[in-house]
């Protein structure tokens, strides 16, 4: 009994440690989330969303790029709201998450994935990338992912509301170079993942095909196209060199 309590206690402490480690590690990337949240809130007001709708969309959809596209389609009068196109756009824009959450598989035992699937709602590009970096350094836990995820979620909810309330009092982030925070964040996370020359080919294929796709295909299909092309190139190169 005593040892059982001891294990539960130490498991609990370990979970809390990892949870807060995840939240702490994600502070820099969450700053980028905050900048985008404010902008989205300002634009949402302009697009005719009510405060309750801002809260509901940020809290339930919780997907930055899908929410930005939704604003282009949104109408202030309910009768003309394109419900079908809004849902379809969210689906298409979020398809890249198929790739992102697939790579979180090592965090879960095969029998845990059902429960794990329920946690995936809290995953965003930023906290996914941070967790990937952690996993690549031989660490990374479910608690770490959740810690970063909860921080990003709360931050997204608060900053979108704040942007909505302050409205155009907020300056365009591009004025202060804050739009570059997104690119800088993912560039640094990419550099942090460098393991050796074997990464060069998949990264180059991904970068090239994503850049070409971004010119030819509208929307953010380029993430999915580049991600698939680069990872397949890496896997083919691995099998040619017989590494597993």
């Amino acid at each position: 009994m005593a040892w059982a309590m001891q294990t539960t206690l130490s498991n609990g402490t370990r979970f809390a440690d990892q949870f807060f480690a995840g939240a702490r590690a994600c502070i820099p990337v969450v700053l980028s989330v905050a900048a985008y949240g404010m902008v989205w809130g300002v634009l949402a007001r302009g697009a005719g969303l009510s405060q309750l709708e801002v809260l509901l969309m940020s809290g339930l959809v919780f997907a930055g790029s899908a929410q930005f596209v939704a604003l282009d389609l949104w109408t202030a009068t309910p009768a003309t709201l394109p419900i079908g196109p809004l849902i379809l756009a969210a689906l298409v824009i979020n398809l890249r998450y198929l790739l992102l959450t697939a790579t979180l598989r090592p965090l879960f035992r095969p029998d845990q994935t059902g429960r794990g699937a329920l946690m995936m709602g809290i995953v965003s590009d930023e906290t996914w990338a941070m967790t990937m970096l952690e996993m690549q350094q031989g660490r990374g836990t479910i608690a770490f992912l959740l810690g970063g995820g909860v921080l990003a979620y709360v931050c997204w909810l608060l900053t979108t509301l704040l942007g909505f309330m302050l409205g155009s009092a907020i300056a365009d982030p591009a004025t202060y170079g804050l739009d570059f925070a997104f690119t800088a964040t993912f560039l640094v996370l990419l550099l942090g993942m460098w393991k050796g020359k074997a990464d060069l080919l998949p990264w180059a294929v991904a970068a090239l095909s994503a850049t070409i796709a971004s010119h030819l295909v509208p929307g953010n299909w380029y993430v999915l196209i580049g991600g698939l092309a680069g990872s397949l190139a890496g896997a083919i190169a691995d099998s040619v060199r017989h590494v597993d």
Binding site: R105, S231, L232, A235
Partner: peptide, 18 residues
Amino acid sequence: AWLRHVPGAVLASLVAPA
């Protein structure tokens, strides 16, 4: 092997066009 290469490829795809 494919799954192992996905994170780097996705990050490169997010950054390169920008």
